[in-house]
């Protein structure tokens, strides 16, 4: 067994990089804790034994022996109390060390994270951002200019020329037809009421006139 253990310990020494001094300290404390637990088991057994002896002696009327056993028991109980106190101290220390180690690890991680964040931010300087925003602004301005140009904001001259063109168009559209030379046989109200129908009405009127004329021409024939 000794051979086996020394071999293990030797292996441990070769790869000591994974084991820190803290680890060793924690192990030492835990071994002390184990020893205290073992001690308590032992004390508990002694207390049980002394209690049994005391009872036995009391039964067989051996008072001094019974008292002695009780005294031993009392003493062991005191020792048990002490060892419990020690155990709680040791366990508290172990907990504190382990907790502190975790805190150190968390701190290290936070530090690394913080550095990483800083590095990323370094790549993103304020001037660069401002410059970028300026460029973006310029690009937007340029785009607006193009839109304006396309949406018809013209110079004064162009504007005038366009207005002139529009005027001409309107004049052409407003050119009135020539006044007819024939007499128009239409009541004036008619013209006023339905100006758009003037020509049609005239036409219809004339048609009716011609119809009557033809009827008149036919009548004499029939009479014959």
């Amino acid at each position: 067994m000794g051979l086996l253990f020394s071999h293990c310990a030797g292996g441990g020494r070769q790869k000591n990089n994974k084991i820190s001094n803290t680890d060793k300290a924690v192990l030492d404390l835990k071994i002390q804790r184990d020893k205290l637990k073992q001690l308590q088991t032992q004390i508990n057994l002694v207390i049980l034994r002394e209690t049994a002896i005391a009872k036995e002696c009391a039964k067989s009327n051996k008072k001094p022996q019974a008292l002695l056993a009780l005294k031993k028991k009392k003493y062991q109980e005191k020792m048990l109390e002490d060892s419990l106190q020690n155990l709680s101290n040791v366990e508290e220390l172990i907990n504190n060390i382990e907790q502190s180690e975790i805190q150190v690890q968390i701190f290290e991680s936070l530090k690394k994270g913080n550095n990483a964040l800083k590095d990323i931010q370094k790549e993103l300087s304020l001037e660069d951002v401002e410059k970028l925003m300026e460029e973006t602004e310029e690009a937007i301005q340029y785009q607006n200019d193009i839109s304006e140009a396309l949406s018809g904001k013209f110079s004064q001259d162009e504007e005038d020329a366009l207005l002139q063109e529009l005027d001409d168009m309107e004049k052409q559209m407003l050119q009135l037809p020539d006044v007819p030379k024939d007499k128009i046989d239409v009541p004036i109200e008619h013209i006023i009421q339905a100006p758009g129908k003037l020509i049609e009405t005239q036409e219809a009127e004339r048609e009716r006139e011609r119809e009557k004329q033809r009827e008149r021409e036919r009548e004499p024939q029939m009479a014959v």
């Binding site: 020394s6 293990c8 310990a9 994974k18 084991i19 060793k24 192990l27």
Partner: peptide, 18 residues
């Protein structure tokens, strides 16, 4: 895991798990 001793001798052995 790594077996190690707190004081270099063979009696106080412990192990750290990874």
């Amino acid at each position: 895991a790594q077996i190690f001793s707190s004081n270099g001798d063979d009696s106080n052995l412990g192990v750290k798990f990874f």
